[in-house]
Design a protein around this nucleic acid. Structure first.
Lengths: 192, 192
DNA sequence: CGTATTATTGACCACTTTCAAAGTGAGTGG
DNA sequence: CCACTCACTTTGAAAGTGGTCAATAATACG
């Protein structure tokens, strides 16, 4: 990669893969996210677009020069990287300690939260959104098999925590129930 | 936390905990590591010293002023944070996709590698080091129970992959065997 | 309409956890 | 010096969660 850039539209995934094919998603690139490592030459993971994408790219050398001359760019990148680090570490808790059902609920709350902040719709009352991932992608994100993902999504539906229209459109009648299922704090904290 | 700083000696852990007590270690702070988030007020996780420690601290406000006036500090912190992000993401693969035995082997190789680079000893031939963690801390790091950790350490010993002297001192007769067990690439890549 | 992709469901099994008991070793005080 | 305690570790047996393999269903697309 001899460029860096930022996502304008579309979705990409960051994944790591073992020799025998096991793969783990380690990040999701959404509009406004930054791509690339200033000061690095090798990309540590696979970056795969899952939809058509538009990106705004810069050649790396000129970008690094710009960074030398404009200190606030490095400071801004530092803030963004710290946010990514927080997200990665939160995900480590999900991967290491949560049950399959809690993992699904965690993923759905994250997507719901992001969707709400994007549409300026609140999180009180019913929340409705599209899942941008296949069952297999969800499995790779959550460290599960796609069969387990399918089963747990069905279980959450049977228990009334979520409603499905088609395969991908999800309605959450009561966010606090979903958060309870995710094992997160029910009360407070929800600053979108 | 109204200060930032850097570890001089000793070891601390970063952990996240759920209400019901399940905990996941999300990072290890070793000598030379940086602690704190310039530009943030709240710490997202628990920081716990597991040994006596010496740290070199700065009050946050003056440090942030210094960062404004010395661009290279932000650039250096960006590099360090990118390294931490890479480590966190590599660990996501371990947590999400590896078996208990592979997790143990992965942890041991990381400690061995760190130890080797610290002592300038190579990784060819037998490698010997102290584990700075209890079984419980290993379990929290790996997303396992301490019983499973104990069983898998015993299994690796029975299979001759490692040798134990006491509970904490480990000898690896052949690093490539351990790396094989970790599910990592055996060949190449080992630049310490 | 047929094929390919994605998703659901079932049966069975393996791995990890849970619960319980016993072992080890360092440090303390009689 | 030895028994005692406490923290850490090992080991066993039973239970449960998620994985594997396999068949079926739904959906999209040519």
């Amino acid at each position: 990669m001899d460029f860096v850039g930022s996502v304008v539209s579309g979705i990409a995934t960051l994944t790591q893969t073992m020799e025998d094919g096991r793969t783990q998603m380690v990040g999701l690139l959404l509009p406004s996210d930054f791509v690339g490592r200033p000061g690095r030459n090798a990309a540590a993971y696979d970056v795969v677009a899952t939809t058509d994408m538009v990106m705004c790219c810069f050649r790396k050398a000129p970008f690094e020069d710009l960074m030398e001359r404009t200190p606030h760019i490095a400071q801004r990148l530092l803030q963004m990287t710290l946010d990514e680090l927080d997200a990665a570490r939160e995900w480590m808790l999900v991967l290491g300690r949560k049950t399959a059902r809690e993992k699904i609920a965690s993923l759905l709350s994250i997507v719901a939260r992001r969707d709400a902040s994007l549409n300026m719709s609140g999180l009180s009352g019913a929340v409705s959104f599209d899942l941008p991932l296949t069952r297999e992608a969800m499995a790779d994100y959550l460290g599960l098999t796609l069969e387990t993902v399918s089963r747990q999504v069905s279980a959450l539906r049977k228990d009334g925590v979520i409603q499905l229209e088609g395969k991908r459109h999800i309605t959450v009648p009561d966010m606090s129930v979903l958060l309870e299922e995710a094992g997160d704090d029910t009360d407070g904290g929800m600053l979108i």
